[in-house]
Amino acid sequence: MECKKVRDRLITDYVDKELGTEENTEVGRHLAACSGCREFSEAVQRSAVIPFKEAGEMQPDGVVWQRIQEKIETERARSGNWFGRLADAWVPLLRMPPPVFRVAFVTALILVVVVLAKWPSSYADPAYGYISEQMTFMGELRSGNADLMNGDLKDYDQMFEAIGG
């Protein structure tokens, strides 16, 4: 085996014990005969393996548990009342992939425009208030919270923060 190929193994599969027996023996034989590769192997150990062997365990500050406890209590309170459950019902909508959401939005927009065009004198209608409220909500979701649409946010919590819940 050439030195280059040996060193590729030395820095990965050999040091991580992922080589098959045959190849392992071959690398070992090369090491016994080649001082350059032996030095390389020692350098791998010294700089990239041994420093991690002495890694200790750290403990988080007490405040971390307090925050966790508070969040859990908030989540429990949310799932215990009707408003929380209503908010939960929105989440599947937010999980939709962007194209689906966009199509749904555009369809809703066209529908509303058509309805309003056919109903010019009905601006005082209670339905108009409701529809415009929904429009604002959808618009906010689209503009201010682009993050919600890119599939990056998977947490309920992050979503609620993003929609101000």
Binding site: G56, Q59, P60, V64
Partner: peptide
């Protein structure tokens, strides 16, 4: 929590971020 915090700390490499991740 020590296990989780330490693992998180090694990946994010700051105390503040490791605490957030642990949470």
């Amino acid at each position: 929590s020590g296990y989780v915090y330490t693992l998180a700390y090694r990946v994010v490499n700051t105390k503040h971020d490791a605490e957030e991740v642990t949470q």
